[in-house]
Amino acid sequence: MDFTNIAFYIFAALTVGSAGVMVFHRNVVYSAVGLLFAFFGVAGIYVLLAADFIAIVQILIYVGGILILLLFGVMLSQKLTKVDVRTESMQLVPAVVVVGGVLAVLLLTISSTPWKLAGSLEYEPTTKAIGRLMMTEYLIPFEIASVLLLAALIGAAYIARKN
């Protein structure tokens, strides 16, 4: 076992464990904390996959943006007289059957497919290459993404405003 393998198992355990807390805890704020550590674990997985830039973007956007939005959402949409912020579950039995089936199919497919491995296993800085691709080959998606963000900004502000 070399170091990256151990690190993979640590990060995978952290990710799955905290995602489990997120899904199965009845308190919404605990779910958010579970999600925090799940995002962090996924960032660690990206580092192991030699995607340094994506890992930092993951922390910056998910933890610094989306998670804070979610926490604000929890706190603005509850009566905060009690710490108790619970959520209920429904359709548990069908959900277990369907999700279990999906997981089984996915795992079977993954293990039975003969993947053609080709990629380089070197660790190289990716930031410059990603920036270059964004400004050349992926310029139009990049511009569309910025327009989408602007539209989402205006739309969210309009919807959330009191009439």
Partner: peptide, 28 residues
Amino acid sequence: DLNVGLFYIIAISSFVVIGIILAGWSSN
């Protein structure tokens, strides 16, 4: 000696916000 060092500092400091929100909320 991280090649995305500056970006990393900006990103990791967002954990502070989460910590502060949790501190405020959990105090009731």
